[in-house]
Design a protein around this nucleic acid. Structure first.
Lengths: 324, 324
DNA sequence: TTGAAAGCGCTAACAG
DNA sequence: CTGTTAGCGCTTTCAA
């Protein structure tokens, strides 16, 4: 910057003002500075700016994982908004581990981001305080049932569970089972199961049986759990899964075991990922608006200065699959 | 930091040294500082550190897009390495636009990243200079044919094209067509087509016809282009596609038009994305190691201090699909 | 409308 | 092993 200033024959602060489009700059000065800056191909140092301002054009984004279409879509949605504002996402992955998440959040906050997007509403103890201390906007995504730190965008998982129960009941299923995995990480999957069970009871057809594997969700685990559940409770005519990976495993098991889907066994997944639309029998699933969730999260973050904190319920819908 | 120093009754630089695990610190001092830091829940300010050091724990990652499984897998691979090193990716998306890419690279570089990962080898003019000026490692991914700025990880697209041509020829296809889109963005897809055409000529069965749509790749475009190509050259017995999105569209067209795949028409895609494995007839495709590419890119970046620049050829393979 | 001075929080270089 | 000094590049006062 010093170089630009001396080449243009002005002070450093004038260069700074021109680069930031500050008001009350004469055209003459602006032109002179721009010319010097261009000829030196000068780019302002964001780090110095951020140190002085205690704020930057970075947005901290903390997601559980990237190896899941759900979160890459969310990130895609976030980026679709940030990109146009000259903002950049700094990524942190928690791998569904609370300790790790705390560490990552701490690190990202030390970059003076202009805002932070977190996954889920379960952020206890030091986290809300750390963020408040910086006075930056927070948006939590995925879930809206609970007490957000700032804003929240997502769906009501209990509504989704009720929708699933009602849908399956309407379809005539009466002996319904449930399969989850990874000891119900993330917690919202547990909330969903509980609401699902409660609704089934209200409908007079309580859950027949369920398996919650300790292993991480995958088609393999879904396949094995489905076989196990059917062995344990052969009367089951339908299974609701914690996510589509498990449900796809269930579908593959049914196909290879010669079980008629959806006649003999109905299958309902959760999330509505792309691959479920290409299977020989397209998977029925509760579709969640992942891209939109990312977009809305970024928008809420940017507008929270004027509009304050908000809770936005994006609705789910039941996909047009053929397995339930 | 001042607070921590005074609470611990030491100088600021001592706090700094403890926080960075600098050598030659007495246990006594370390303990005293750590206690003070913990009780104040102090986190070092990375921005200030980066300003002083002219370097940070950020890695600039410039990808074309997030709405493509290929690049989210790459990012997943990158993160799988960075995560364990306390490094963080700052994301920039080019949207396959050279101008935009330049702008994004400039912005990310102004954050003093410790390294940068770029997509493709086509980075002319100011970009190599900008990066060299900072003296940070660069890794370019996807392609290895060309002149990298620093290191490169990817596959040889001409090898892949030759592999595809040989594979289809071996399978007995003799009237082969090609479908691309988006005017062959990114450029490596063009290189692939040219090598494919050349090889087919060498094999004595030159390309029968091709369509390069101007629209962005999608299953819809693939479906339409396939119909158009078959109308234009009905003798075609096999089509090689620039990517799996197009190829899936081709498969959907064939299925709905009652064309027998692979007997009447062979289909070969490129990339080997997940969804292609779940279709009623699994898609044959040239599988590229996307996750591995991300991992290797991050590893090369980290090791380039000791090992210098390298070019790493990750091999492709032909998937066990059933469409060709 | 422009400039001068001071300092954001941290750390390299140099004492001690 | 610990401390003092100075400055990274920028921008917020305050003055002119």
């Amino acid at each position: 910057m010093k170089d630009v200033a001396s080449l243009a024959g002005v002070s450093e602060i004038s260069v700074s003002r021109v680069m930031r489009n500050a008001p009350n700059i004469s055209k003459k000065l602006r032109d002179r500075v721009m010319e010097a800056a261009n000829s030196l191909s000068y780019t302002p140092n964001r780090v110095a700016g951020a140190l002085k301002n205690q704020s930057s054009n970075l947005v901290a984004v903390v997601l559980p994982s990237m190896s899941n279409e759900v979160f890459s879509s969310v990130l895609d949605g976030i980026e679709s908004v940030l990109n146009d504002q000259g903002l950049h996402a700094v990524l942190g992955l928690s791998e569904y581990d609370t300790e790790r998440e705390l560490k990552v959040i701490r690190e990202l906050l030390s970059w003076s981001p202009m805002g932070i997007i977190l996954t889920g509403l379960h952020h206890q103890d030091p986290i809300p305080g750390m963020i408040e201390q910086l006075g930056i906007p927070v948006v939590q995504i995925m879930d809206i049932e609970g007490t957000p730190i700032g804003s929240a965008v997502g769906i009501s998982h209990s509504d989704a569970a009720i929708g699933a129960a009602d849908y399956l009941h309407d379809k005539g299923y009466r002996k319904i089972g449930y399969i989850g995995a990874w000891s119900e990480k993330p917690e919202r999957s547990k909330a969903r199961r509980l609401a699902f069970e409660a609704r089934l009871s209200d409908l007079g057809t309580p859950l027949v049986a369920s398996i919650i594997s300790e292993e991480r969700s995958s088609a393999t685990v879904g396949s094995q759990s489905t076989a196990a559940l059917l062995q344990q409770a052969p009367e089951i005519d339908c299974i609701f899964y914690a996510n589509d990976d498990l449900a796809l495993g269930g579908l593959f098991h049914a196909l290879s075991a010669g079980i008629n889907v959806p006649g003999e066994l109905g299958l309902l997944g959760f999330n509505g990922i792309e691959i479920g639309k290409a299977t020989p029998i397209p998977l029925s699933s509760i579709e969640t608006p992942r891209f939109e969730m990312g977009r809305e999260a970024a928008k809420l973050l940017l507008s929270s200065k004027e509009n304050g904190n908000r809770i936005k319920d994006l609705s789910f819908k039941i996909s047009g699959g053929k397995t339930a």
